[in-house]
């Protein structure tokens, strides 16, 4: 997997934004606690029209770990998540200050091609959204379009990734069928297989289990744990227990500000900020 990124890349690629990198690393409270950083936001302020959703967010996301984004409704979790793969860029009235760095390089750098960026940073949505084509075509759609696989290798790729998400046994005899006959949980697993087939380095999960039953939720959570450390996972969740179960690290956002960022257990059991203590104790939001 490409997660074993070239260590020389960040330094060499940082170029015009290096100043901001240093600043971000310094401001991030837990910068020194663990392994290398995959994604960094540096003074990210972002809004749509007159509304500001994120203000001056400085966080870093550890490579090869599961990071949970928690916070009350409207705290900007999803907006932050969608910024990482530039899904907000085309929303009307979008404005931004600050930067997001992937391996030390700005994701808005003119040399960054958004298609390739999104191949490297995959995403899973709240509701499963398979394409209106066969199960097999769904899995290989991205891989085919990115020319990661030829026509001949389609079946192998489909089998590999469907097996990885534990769906192969259930669908191997109906690869040509419509994905809409699968259950919601199976559809979400299919979408995960589809996202994995383009070999991403980072996977963004936007409340991936919010529309699923407990069994399917458990399947997804267990799967998420198997993705690390090959893939860096960021998961937005409203479910604090889920954050505790799956996340190595947790970022707490409130009203567009990053309140606390640290080891999940530390953050839940000994929060440094009073706001965090209130939230994890269920006292607001």
């Amino acid at each position: 997997m490409s997660t074993q990124a070239d260590p020389a890349q960040p330094a060499e690629a940082a170029g015009p934004v290096r100043g901001r990198v240093d600043q971000a690393v310094v401001t991030a409270p837990h910068a020194a606690t663990a392994g290398p950083v995959a994604l960094t936001t540096a003074g990210l302020t972002l809004g749509f029209g007159t509304r500001t959703i994120l203000s001056d967010v400085c966080v870093d996301v550890r490579r090869g770990a599961v990071t949970a984004l928690i916070g009350p409704t409207g705290s900007g979790k999803t907006t932050l998540l969608r910024t990482f793969n530039r899904m907000n860029d085309r929303v009307s009235g979008y404005h931004r200050k600050g930067d997001v760095l992937l391996d030390g390089r700005s994701i808005w750098h003119p040399g960054v091609e958004v298609m390739e960026l999104r191949r490297r940073i995959g995403m899973l949505f709240q509701r499963p959204n398979p394409f209106p084509m066969s199960i097999m075509e769904n899995v290989v759609a991205g891989a085919r379009a990115h020319r990661l696989v030829g026509k001949a290798g389609m079946k192998d790729v489909a089998e590999k990734h469907l097996t990885a998400v534990g769906l192969w046994g259930a669908v191997k005899d109906r690869l040509k069928d419509s994905p809409f006959r699968l259950s919601g949980g199976q559809q979400q697993l299919l979408c995960l297989a589809r996202a994995l087939a383009v070999t991403p380095e980072v996977l963004l999960l936007d409340e991936p289990t919010s529309s699923l039953d407990p069994a399917a939720t458990q399947a997804i959570e267990e799967l998420v744990r198997t993705l690390v450390p090959d893939i860096t996972v960021i998961i937005v969740t409203h479910n604090l227990a889920q954050a505790l179960r799956v996340a190595d690290r947790t970022i707490f956002l409130n009203q567009g500000r990053m309140v606390e960022n640290g080891e999940t257990r530390q953050l839940f059991e000994h929060p440094a900020e009073e706001e965090t203590a209130h939230y994890v104790a269920g006292r607001f939001g």
């Binding site: 999104r118 589809r194 996202a195």
Partner: peptide
């Protein structure tokens, strides 16, 4: 959701 799914795959 189709378009978003495709965008997110970098298609």
């Amino acid at each position: 959701s189709y378009r978003e799914g495709a965008d997110a795959l970098g298609l």
